[in-house]
Design a binder for these strands. Structure first.
Lengths: 112, 112
DNA sequence: ATCTTATTTAGGCAAATACCTAAATGTCTC
DNA sequence: GAGACATTTAGGTATTTGCCTAAATAAGAT
C-alpha cells in the first residue's frame, strides 16, 4: 500500500505514468481545458480525469473552472523539486567519479 | 493496473518510493552488499529485497553475488534517461517563457 | 559435518491503481 | 426552460504494490 507522504514521492509517482507525462509535456506549451487535453488519449473521460487529479494532488498542475470548462496549467515548482533531486544525485555521482579518478591518477604516479 | 512498459515509466516508478530513493542515494557513494544496504531501514529483509528487485528490474542498479553476499551498485544510464527527460521539459518550459516575454516586450514597445 | 550468516522462496493480506459504464450535475445557447 | 456541452460522481473490477512471517537454500568458518 503506497503511502505517499512527501512531495518527491508524489511527483515521481505522478511522472511514472505515460499519460500523465504526456499531459505535463502538453501543458508546457500552455493551458488547456480538460476535453482538449484528453483528446489524444484513447481512454474514457473519467479515467483521464483521474490522471489529472493525481497531477493536481501532487501540485504538478493546477486548474481553474471558467464557465463550463476546467482549464489546466503546469505548476513548475514541484517539477523542479524532482528535477533538483535528480541533478543533485547526478552531481554527487560525478563528484565521486572525480575523486576516484584523482585517487587512481595519484596511485599511478606513486608507482613510477 | 499499472502496466509499465517503457523505461521512463519504470524509472520514475522506482524513484517514487523513499526507500528506493535512499538506496540509490546510498549507492552513489559506492557498492554495498544487501545487508549493509538494508541496515538503516526498519523493514523485514524480504520486503527490502523487493525494493532492490524493482530497482534492478528497471536497470537503475545492478548486482552480483560474491560468496554469500550480493553486492549492489548504481547503473547511471537509466537514471540519466529520467533526468534527461526532466531537463528537456524544463528547457521547453523556459523557452516558452522566453518567447512569451519577448512577445510582451514587443507589445509594450508598440504601445508607446 | 555442523553452525552461522546471507539471501531467497513461498504464501498471504490490505490498500492503491487504472481502467470502465451509467447516471448526475452544472453552465451556456436558443 | 429545453437541449447541448463539459465535467463530475458513483460504483465496480482486475492487477499491482508493499508489507509481513516462516521456511528453504547457499556458502563460509570451525
Amino acid at each position: 500500500m503506497p503511502n505517499f507522504q512527501n512531495t518527491l514521492d508524489l511527483a515521481f509517482h505522478a511522472l511514472s505514468d505515460p499519460t500523465r507525462r504526456a499531459v505535463v509535456s502538453r501543458l508546457v506549451e500552455g493551458e488547456l481545458p480538460v476535453t482538449a487535453l484528453a483528446e489524444p488519449f484513447d481512454m474514457a473521460l473519467p479515467s483521464f480525469t483521474q490522471h489529472l487529479k493525481v497531477l493536481e494532488d501532487c501540485g504538478l498542475i493546477a486548474s481553474e473552472k471558467r464557465g463550463r470548462s476546467r482549464w489546466c496549467r503546469l505548476v513548475p515548482q514541484r517539477f523542479d523539486e524532482a528535477a533538483d533531486w535528480m541533478m543533485a544525485e547526478r552531481e554527487r555521482w560525478s563528484a565521486r567519479l572525480d575523486r576516484l579518478d584523482a585517487y587512481l591518477n595519484n596511485n599511478q604516479k606513486g608507482e613510477k
